[in-house]
Amino acid sequence: VTLFVALYDYEARTEDDLSFHKGSKFQILNSSEGDWWEARSLTTGETGYIPSNYVAPV
């Protein structure tokens, strides 16, 4: 499992996005959609889309 960590805070703009804070960790579920990845937050357990340029591999 590849884990990613948030580099910045992000406020969701749609109900499909995940809001998160810098330092939040994610499991990436689908990275084939270009700049928006489907991810599960390891902090909240919620699933949604995150901007790929806001995260980096742990």
Rank of each mutant, 00 (worst) to 15 (best):
K25N: 06
I50P: 01
Y10W: 08
S24G: 06
Q27H: 12
T43I: 10
D9S: 09
E46Q: 12
T47Y: 08
T44L: 03
W37P: 00
D35L: 12
T47C: 10
W36I: 07
Y49F: 13
E38G: 04
P57M: 09
Y54A: 12
D17A: 15
Y8L: 08
E11G: 05
N53D: 10
S32C: 13
I50S: 01
A39E: 00
R13P: 07
G48N: 01
L7V: 07
K22A: 12
R13D: 08
R40Q: 08
S19Q: 04
A39K: 00
L3M: 10
E46M: 10
P57V: 08
L7I: 10
A56H: 09
H21W: 10
Y49V: 07
Y10D: 00
F26I: 04
Y49N: 07
A39H: 00
L7W: 03
H21L: 14
S31A: 13
Y8S: 06
A12C: 05
P51I: 03
Y49L: 14
Y8N: 06
G23Y: 06
F26G: 00
S31H: 10
V58I: 13
F4A: 07
H21T: 15
G34V: 12
S31W: 13
V58R: 03
L3W: 11
L18M: 13
L7P: 00
F4R: 02
E11L: 10
Y54K: 06
A39Y: 02
V1M: 13
E11D: 10
D9M: 04
K22Y: 05
V1E: 13
S41H: 11
L42Q: 06
P51V: 02
L29Y: 06
R40T: 10
F26H: 00
T44D: 06
S32K: 10
N30V: 08
K22Q: 08
E15Y: 10
W37E: 00
V1L: 13
V58F: 12
A56S: 09
K22W: 05
L7D: 01
G34H: 12
D35P: 10
S24M: 15
F4S: 02
I50M: 02
K22N: 04
K22S: 07
E46G: 06
A12D: 02
L42E: 07
G23R: 02
L42H: 05
D17C: 15
Y49M: 14
E46D: 08
V5Q: 07
G45S: 05
S52R: 13
D17L: 10
T43R: 09
L18W: 05
A39G: 05
E38R: 12
K22V: 10
E38M: 15
T43F: 09
T2M: 13
D16M: 14
L3I: 15
E38I: 15
V55E: 01
N30P: 04
N30R: 08
L7T: 04
L7M: 09
E11R: 09
N53V: 09
Y8M: 09
Y49D: 02
A12N: 05
E46T: 07
L29R: 04
T47A: 06
H21E: 12
E46V: 08
T2V: 13
V58C: 13
I28Y: 02
T47G: 03
Y8F: 11
N53S: 14
A39Q: 00
V5F: 09
T2C: 15
G45K: 05
E46P: 01
E33N: 15
V1H: 13
W37T: 02
V1R: 11
L29A: 05
T44S: 09
E11A: 10
S52W: 09
I28A: 02
D16P: 04
V55Q: 00
D16V: 13
S19D: 04
E15V: 12
R40I: 13
P57W: 05
L29M: 08
Y49K: 13
F4L: 04
Y54D: 01
D17T: 15
I50Y: 00
V1P: 11
Y10G: 00
V1I: 13
E33I: 11
L3H: 09
Y49T: 07
Y10E: 00
D16I: 13
E38P: 05
A6Y: 02
R40M: 12
L29C: 08
D16F: 15
Y10M: 02
A12Y: 02
T47R: 10
L42P: 04
L3Q: 07
Y54S: 10
R40P: 00
E33D: 15
V55A: 04
R13K: 13
R13L: 11
G34C: 12
V58S: 07
F26W: 07
A6K: 01
E33F: 12
S19I: 02
S19Y: 03
Y8P: 00
D16W: 15
T44C: 05
S19E: 04
A6L: 02
G34P: 15
E38F: 15
G45N: 08
P57N: 05
A56G: 08
G45I: 02
V55K: 01
W36H: 07
E15W: 09
T44G: 04
S24K: 04
L42R: 03
V58N: 05
G23P: 00
F20R: 01
F4C: 07
S19L: 01
A12W: 02
W36E: 03
T47V: 15
F26P: 00
W37M: 06
D17F: 15
E46R: 11
F26K: 00
L18K: 01
A6T: 02
L7Q: 04
R13Y: 07
S24H: 15
S32N: 11
R40E: 06
S52V: 08
N30E: 07
N53C: 14
A6I: 02
I28D: 00
I28T: 01
A12Q: 06
A39D: 00
D9A: 07
D9L: 03
F26C: 03
P57C: 06
G48M: 04
T47H: 08
F26S: 00
E11Y: 09
F4M: 08
E33K: 14
T43D: 14
E38T: 11
N30T: 08
A12T: 04
W37K: 02
L18T: 03
D35H: 10
L29K: 05
V58W: 14
S24T: 15
A12F: 02
F26T: 00
E15Q: 12
A12L: 02
A56D: 04
W37N: 01
Y8V: 06
S24C: 14
L18A: 01
L3K: 05
N53G: 11
Y54R: 06
I28G: 00
Y8I: 06
R13N: 09
T14N: 14
G48L: 04
L18S: 01
D17E: 15
T14G: 15
D9W: 05
V5K: 04
D16T: 14
S52T: 06
A6M: 02
G45A: 05
T14K: 13
T2G: 11
D17H: 15
E15S: 13
W37L: 08
F20Q: 00
I50T: 00
G45R: 04
V58A: 09
Q27N: 06
F20D: 00
A39W: 02
E38H: 14
V5M: 08
H21M: 13
T14H: 14
F4N: 01
A6E: 00
W36M: 13
T2P: 12
V55S: 01
Q27W: 14
S41E: 10
G23H: 05
F20P: 00
E33H: 14
Y10F: 09
D16L: 14
D9K: 04
T44P: 01
P51S: 04
T47F: 07
N53A: 14
S24Y: 14
G45C: 08
K22D: 01
G48W: 03
A56R: 11
S41V: 08
D17M: 14
D9H: 06
Y54H: 08
V55W: 02
R40H: 08
V5L: 07
E11S: 10
W37Q: 03
E33W: 10
G23E: 03
L3G: 03
W36K: 11
H21A: 13
R40V: 11
Y49G: 03
S19G: 07
K22T: 07
E15T: 13
L42C: 14
G34A: 14
G23T: 02
T47E: 08
D17Q: 15
V1G: 13
L3N: 05
S19K: 04
K22M: 08
S24R: 03
S24E: 15
P57S: 07
S41R: 07
R13Q: 14
I50E: 01
F4Y: 15
K25G: 05
L7F: 03
L42S: 04
